[in-house]
Design a protein around this nucleic acid. Structure first.
Length: 514
RNA sequence: CGGGGAGUGGCGCAGCCUGGUAGCGCACCUGUUUUGGGUACAGGGGGUCGCAAGUUCGAAUCUUGUCUCCCCGACCA
C-alpha cells in the first residue's frame, strides 16, 4: 500500500545497501567508531548478540565442549608453521612491535625505539595455532582424546573493505577447536558442529540455511575440508553464516599434537575448527528487516514484549502505570519457548507515539500500548511487529485484547512470530533457487537478465580441480558469481557438468555473495 | 590497496563554483492545544562546518596533507 508511511526513509527495493545501513542506525544496533573498520555495538545490537551467545553456548556445552580462553597476542613464529595458513592470513594481520610509548617532544607520543619487541606479536585473526600449542601440551595419550574446546573472543583481520557486522576488522565470535584420535571422529565432529550451527541459526535466528561442503578453492587456509551454512539475504545474495573445518593432521603436525595409542605408538591427532561471528547479526538484519526497520525473532530478542504506557501528565497516569506493571508482572511469570518471557515496561518519559516507532524500528516482536480506556475496559492494545500494517487502511494493525487473554496467549503469540518469520524467510529462499539450467551460458544469462534479485542457482558440475577449477573460477568471477557449497542434502548428480559437459558428480549452489 | 564520491547541531541536507566566522526539515526543550493515535501552533536550546597546515585583512567556502565513511574493483575462513 503506497499510503503507508514507513518508519525508514530508504526502502529495500530502492537501495538495499543504503537500507541496510539505515536499519543499523535506526534500530540503534551499532555505530561508527572512528577507527577504521571497527564499530561500536550498542546495547540493542549487543543484546541480540548476547542472546545468540547464550543459546549457542548452551548447545556447545550440551555437546560436551568446554569453554576456555586463549591469548589475544600470538607469537609470530607460531604462524609460520603451517604454510597454507600463513598464505591465508599474512596479508591481513595486525602486528604489535613495541611495548611502550615515549613523548616525541612535540606533545605527542611515539613507540619507544628502545622498547621494540624481540619477536613481534600478531593480534589473533583466528586461534588454530595458539590453541594447537596448548593441545600439544594437553594431549599425551589416547585417553586424553577427544579434546574439545571453545572460546568466545574477538579477532582482528585487517580488511580492505568493511561493512558493519558483515565484515569488520575486529569482530566477535566463537571458535571451537577439537582434537581426535582418528579421521573418522574428527569428521564426525566437523559435521556435528555444522549441524549445531544449522539448528541454532534456523531455530533461534529464524534464518533458513543450506548446509554443504565448500569447493576446494573456498577452503579455510590449511583445511582438508570446509563446510558451511549459507543463508539467502533479501537481495538474493548469499551469506556464509558459519563454517566448520576438518583440518586433517596438518595443524597437529605443525604444533606437535600427538598421542600414544593403546599399542604404544605415537600418532598425530586429527583436528577440527568451527566458527560463527557477529556477522550473523548482519544476516538477521538482511533476513528479517523490512521498510520499518528490524524485526527481531523472539528467541533472540532482548525484550520480547515492550509495554508502552500512554501517559499524559494527568492524575490517572499512576493508575495506568500500575495497570501496566500488573501486566508486566503477569507476563514475566509466563514462559515461552523454554524460557521466561522477557518483558520491558518502558516508563521512560516521552510521547507514547514516539516510543512506539522507536520500538518498531528496533524490532521488538510485540509492542503493547496501554491507555486509560484500555485500562477501564481491562484490555491492552497489541501490535505484532511481523504484521505491523493493516493493508486495508494503511494504518498500524492493532488488536484490543482483554488483558488476561493476552497474558495467557503471549507464549503462543511469540512462538507464532518466531515461526512466521522463519516461514517467510524459508519461502522466499525456496522461491528464489532456480534449478534445471544445464549450460553455463544459461547460468550467466540468468544472472544478467534477472535484475537486482536473481537469487541462487543449483547446477551440476564435474568437480574440477587444479587448472580446470581455476578456469571455472575465472568464468564465475567474470559474472561476479561464486560457488557457495555442495548442499549436503541435495540429490545425486544425474546430468552433465555445466562448465565442461562431462558427466557431473555433484550439485552446487551458484550465487552472488557477501 | 587502485578508481570515484562524501564528511556542516542527534538524523537527513542546503550553503562552497563567485571567501566576509552558518541555515533548513525532522528530533530535542518550554508553553498552549489536542487526545485511541506518528496532533497542531508559538517560543527556544544546541554546531568554532572531520582534523592539521597553508593562502588571505578575513576560510565551511581556495590549496596541500591526513583521518573516517560510502560506491566500484582487487582481496576476503
Amino acid at each position: 500500500m503506497s499510503n503507508i508511511r514507513h518508519a525508514l526513509n530508504v526502502k529495500r527495493e530502492d537501495d538495499f545497501a543504503k537500507w541496510y545501513q539505515e536499519v543499523i542506525s535506526a534500530a540503534d544496533l551499532a555505530e561508527e567508531s572512528g577507527v577504521r573498520g571497527c564499530m561500536v555495538i550498542k546495547p540493542w545490537g549487543y543484546g541480540i548478540w548476547e542472546r545468540y551467545q547464550r543459546l549457542m553456548d548452551d548447545r556447545i556445552k550440551a555437546a560436551g565442549i568446554q569453554n576456555a580462553y586463549f591469548p589475544l597476542f600470538i607469537p609470530l613464529a607460531n604462524f609460520e608453521r603451517e604454510a597454507d595458513h600463513v598464505d591465508g592470513f599474512a596479508k591481513e594481520m595486525a602486528v604489535v612491535t613495541h611495548h611502550r610509548l615515549i613523548a616525541d617532544g612535540k606533545g605527542g607520543l611515539v613507540p619507544d625505539p628502545d622498547a621494540k619487541l624481540e619477536e613481534p606479536l600478531v593480534v589473533r585473526p583466528t586461534s588454530e595455532t595458539i590453541i594447537g600449542d596448548a593441545m600439544a601440551r594437553w594431549v599425551q595419550s589416547w585417553r586424553d582424546l577427544p579434546l574439545m574446546i571453545n572460546q568466545w573472543a574477538n579477532v582482528v583481520r585487517w580488511e580492505m573493505r568493511t561493512r558493519m557486522f558483515l565484515r569488520t576488522s575486529e569482530f566477535l565470535w566463537q571458535e571451537g577447536h577439537t582434537a581426535h584420535a582418528t579421521r573418522e571422529e574428527a569428521l564426525e565432529e566437523t559435521h556435528r558442529a555444522l549441524e549445531m550451527y544449522r539448528a541454532c541459526v534456523e531455530d533461534d535466528l529464524a534464518m533458513p540455511v543450506i548446509a554443504g561442503e565448500k569447493p576446494e578453492h573456498e577452503r579455510f587456509p590449511g583445511a582438508d575440508e570446509t563446510w558451511s551454512i549459507e543463508a539467502m539475504m533479501q537481495d538474493g545474495k548469499a551469506l556464509q553464516a558459519g563454517t566448520s573445518h576438518y583440518l586433517g593432521t596438518s595443524f597437529a603436525k605443525a604444533a606437535g599434537i600427538q598421542y600414544q595409542d593403546s599399542e604404544g605408538t605415537q600418532q598425530l591427532c586429527h583436528t577440527t575448527s568451527w566458527g560463527t561471528s557477529t556477522r550473523l547479526i548482519g544476516g538477521v538484519i538482511m533476513t528479517h528487516g523490512d521498510d520499518d526497520g528490524l524485526r527481531v525473532p523472539p528467541r533472540i530478542a532482548p525484550h520480547q514484549i515492550v509495554i508502552l504506557p500512554m501517559l499524559r501528565d494527568k492524575p490517572e497516569d499512576a493508575d495506568v502505570l500500575a495497570y501496566c506493571e500488573q501486566v508486566r508482572k503477569a507476563l514475566t511469570a509466563e514462559w515461552s519457548m523454554g524460557e521466561p518471557i522477557r518483558v520491558l515496561l518502558d516508563k521512560s518519559p516521552g510521547k507514547a507515539a514516539a516510543k512506539r516507532w522507536e520500538w518498531v524500528r528496533k524490532g521488538a516482536p510485540v509492542i503493547v500500548e496501554v491507555g486509560p480506556r484500555d485500562m477501564s475496559e481491562g484490555k491492552v492494545a497489541v501490535m505484532r511487529r511481523d504484521a505491523l500494517w493493516n493493508l486495508e487502511n494503511g494504518k498500524t494493525a492493532m488488536s484490543f485484547t482483554p488483558r488476561d487473554e493476552f497474558v495467557s496467549g503471549a507464549s503462543k503469540l511469540l512462538e507464532d512470530i518466531q515461526d512466521s518469520l522463519y516461514a517467510e524467510a524459508r519461502d522466499r529462499r525456496d522461491a528464489n533457487i532456480t534449478r534445471g539450467l544445464t549450460e553455463w551460458s544459461e547460468v550467466a544469462e540468468f544472472f544478467r537478465s534477472n535484475g537486482k534479485y536473481p537469487g541462487w542457482v543449483e547446477v551440476q558440475w564435474a568437480k574440477p580441480t587444479g587448472a580446470a577449477l581455476e578456469k571455472v573460477v575465472e568464468q564465475l568471477k567474470a559474472e561476479k558469481l561464486t560457488v557457495r557449497n555442495v548442499p549436503r542434502d541435495s540429490e545425486a548428480a544425474d546430468g552433465t557438468c555445466i562448465f565442461t559437459g562431462e558427466k557431473a558428480v555433484e550439485r552446487i549452489l551458484v550465487a552472488r555473495a557477501y
